[in-house]
Write a protein that binds this DNA or RNA. Structure first.
Length: 310
DNA sequence: AAGTGTGGCAACCGCCAGCTT
DNA sequence: TAAGCTGGCGGTTGCCACACT
């Protein structure tokens, strides 16, 4: 594949050691790796090549396993429904390929990323839609002579508004807990302001999930502590359910998630959203608001459900 | 049939966060 | 607390197959 001597950086790549093979994997190497992992399990990638007798670096082994050899990896063309799901998730999450892949069984982040870059982004552009923002190109290009297709800076993995604009639209319809007069549809000026806010505050889901609002809604990360029943039960499932609701445009999609949502937690989360708005953390605030609304919807659904059962 | 252009995708790179020592 | 290690992520590269001339 790539020319091993092509690296001109001063940093030493992990595969630069003499005797470490690079490039395409042979069927024999695949077999050795697959057999070793079946026998010993995943992990310990750094030491795996030596243990398995492979002349590869650990990173290369991990990548080969994750993207190609894993039994759960689905090969073949992306189906139309998968494509639709990728589009929806990208509109929601931006270039969070691993998160998107996590919602599409059998597909890897690399595969989805490649599919996006080679198919979907071009498709959107041909439709006059900015693939980063999912907004009409003429709307986004306001204030600059052309649409910026440069790679997104590492410090800001999400493009400006890749998620917030969609969430903003969503929030308009569901955020009864927030200031009802607040118009969350971003204008071009707001795009710019949000971009600056995101640059300053770090606009990524991982950051958000560590935020105060996420903690309020989803609960503390597993710390071994016992912070109470709700916190214990309402974390990853809640987030997953929330994503489902956004993907499906249906806030009552997950009937299994009909758990009582303590109003004090929702109130605290709403306050956190307000705080984030006031501090300019628009993207976080909107997600938190949506989560609050989602929780309220679930409460309402629960109440109706219980009422019906009586 | 040969040369050239293009798209697809596997693989690599650098960076970063979390964990361990 | 700091330094080193490890795994994971997103961006990018470049080979290869196929289409086109």
């Amino acid at each position: 594949m790539r020319n091993p001597s092509s690296s001109t950086t001063s940093k030493t790549p992990c595969c630069s050691k003499v005797g470490i093979k690079r490039g395409p994997w042979t069927p024999e190497e695949d077999e050795v790796l697959a057999n070793y992992i079946k026998r010993e399990g995943e992990g310990r990638w750094r030491t795996l090549p030596k243990q398995a007798g492979l002349l590869r670096c650990g990173k290369s082994c991990r990548l080969r396993w994750m993207n190609y050899l894993r039994p759960s990896v689905k090969r073949g063309r992306i189906a139309p429904d998968e494509e639709d799901l990728i589009l929806r998730l990208h509109r929601l999450l931006g270039n969070r390929w691993s998160l998107i892949a996590g919602r599409i069984p059998g597909r890897t982040d690399n595969e989805i990323k490649n599919y996006w870059n080679t198919h979907l982004s071009k498709k959107l552009i041909s439709q006059g839609i900015d693939p980063r923002t999912h907004k009409p190109l003429n709307l986004i290009s306001h204030g600059s002579s052309q649409v910026n297709h440069d790679p997104v800076p590492k410090s800001n993995p999400n493009p400006p508004n890749s998620s917030s604009s969609e969430l903003g639209e969503k929030t308009i319809t569901v955020t009864a807990t927030k200031n009802a007069t607040q118009d969350l549809t971003p204008t071009n000026l707001e795009y710019h302001q949000q971009y600056q806010n995101q640059q300053a505050g770090g606009n990524c889901l991982a950051n958000w999930r560590n935020s105060e609002g996420a903690t309020l809604i989803m609960g503390q990360p597993s710390s071994g502590g016992n912070e109470g029943g709700y916190i214990e039960n309402c974390n990853e499932d809640m987030f997953s359910s929330f994503l489902d609701s956004l993907i499906n445009d249906n806030f009552l999609v997950n009937q299994h998630q009909q758990q009582q949502q303590p109003n004090n937690v929702l109130a605290a989360a709403a306050a956190s959203a307000d705080q984030n708005f006031s501090h300019g953390n628009i993207w976080e605030a909107e997600i938190i608001s949506s989560m609050v609304a989602f929780g309220n919807e679930q409460n309402s659904s629960n109440n109706h459900h219980r009422h019906d059962q009586r």
